[in-house]
């Protein structure tokens, strides 16, 4: 049910993979973890392929990360969007805010 984070460092870049549900149930827990990861690197790449559900709270976390990254002059990339995450970003018309290329899964 909860989200699992797996991350690996590659120089200044941190590659993070989130699996499970990015939702209100784990938002409180995830906020410091995600900010910590962002704080420790110059580039954060988040792989969303395994995100089965994204709700408003989850979206707010992603938004917060993007905002913080911008303010700190860092790079935040969302990659390999799962259909659940894509649906939310499209519905809120927020793809442009994140500015990540979106690959449509076949």
């Amino acid at each position: 049910m909860d989200a699992t984070l797996t991350s690996e460092r590659d120089g200044d870049t941190c590659r993070l993979k989130i699996s499970g549900e990015l939702s209100i149930y784990c938002a409180a827990e995830l906020k410091p973890q995600l900010l910590g990861l962002l704080g420790g690197c110059q580039e954060l790449e988040i792989n969303l392929a395994e995100v089965a559900e994204l709700d408003s709270a989850g979206f707010q976390l992603l938004y917060l990360l993007k905002r913080e990254a911008r303010q700190a002059g860092k790079e935040l990339r969302l990659v390999a969007h799962s259909s659940a995450t894509l649906e939310v970003l499209e519905m809120l018309r927020m793809e442009a805010y994140f500015g990540d290329p979106v690959v449509l899964a076949s």
Partner: peptide
């Protein structure tokens, strides 16, 4: 949404 310290991940800051 307030600044990073005050942002409560369980609060809703959305408007549409």
């Amino acid at each position: 949404m307030p600044n990073v310290e005050e942002m409560d991940p369980e609060s809703c800051y959305l408007g549409m």
